[in-house]
Design a binder for these strands. Sequence first.
DNA 1: GTCTATAATTTGATAGAC
DNA 2: GTCTATCAAATTATAGAC
Lengths: 190, 190
Amino acid sequence: MEPKIYSPKANEILDVAEAHMRMGGFDAISFRDLARAVGVKSASVHYHFPQKADLGKAVVARYRERVIAALGDPQDARTPIAKLKLLFAVYSAALSDGDSVCLCCVLGAEARYLPPDVAAEVRLFFETMTNWTRDALAAGLSKAKATEAATHIIGALQGAMVLSVALGDDDRLKNTQKTLMRFVKKDLAG
Amino acid sequence: MEPKIYSPKANEILDVAEAHMRMGGFDAISFRDLARAVGVKSASVHYHFPQKADLGKAVVARYRERVIAALGDPQDARTPIAKLKLLFAVYSAALSDGDSVCLCCVLGAEARYLPPDVAAEVRLFFETMTNWTRDALAAGLSKAKATEAATHIIGALQGAMVLSVALGDDDRLKNTQKTLMRFVKKDLAG
DNA sequence: GTCTATAATTTGATAGAC
DNA sequence: GTCTATCAAATTATAGAC
């Protein structure tokens, strides 16, 4: 699954689409708004992404590839704690970066309402993220414990972002990250 | 803030609106769809709820009142663990009941996109829930610890529901609840 | 790649009769 | 409370010229 290459204009469109989706979900984007934002007409957006589902799929896939690239190999030499810290930093950046929630959190919540193709990409994101976290913790925990912790961590981060955005209070995410770190350190200790 | 009383038909409308919003967010409802579902015309829906924001406000307020009524007084004689178990049961029911996420999770994720009145109701839901959980834990923890744990718990439950729905796997919520319970019991113990 | 033009549908909302 | 009728605007999408 090598990352797809897009033309500069297509990438511009994906940028704007991602920003809007992160604030209001899949229906928060319209071809006309996207077109105006990047300085073309709506028919041109359809040229790059014929159907809205194509656009949604591309936005989520690119997002997933970008996040996973930022996290690096979960099985390399770094300590589990160092990997976890990086995971937290990536999520914090996603929040402060435009004060919006993780793309797949908004879309995941409305998964049953999405075009099946888009929902599948969202599912893949969560599977990828929980697997990454499980592998990152594998050095210090049993496989069962690492799997349980990974599910808990990814879920808690998603939920904390919802609270942060809904309450307009970034400290909620910080609070959850602190609690998670304390929790994992205890588990790693024994 | 005594609960508002609605006519039977208005309640029917709120039922359908809530179910749809929980699957697809605020934009997942339309006056025409609601009207058809309850057997009237769209103009009649506007009679009960003039603007869409009025409808959204009412759905969230009723939801909050129902959930908080199910949880009971956080400061009564039950043990913190018993209260937590009830909280978990309420969330589990919300998930299995129509396989949809907590209403305020979907809406919270798109909070910055909602009419301000609706966003305020969502915020109030999360404040109410974290305060309830904090008070439920107050019997066994310091105020600071209880506050930290409450934020963590409510966030983790929201996020776990997103994972469950997005992955089509109810066990994610169960996993998180198990982990949270273990975590709280450790905190209560020392 | 981008444009004009347009089709077909849906949406939130209102006026006024019953 | 519900209806008919209607509106203005927005939406996804396509055909065909440049």
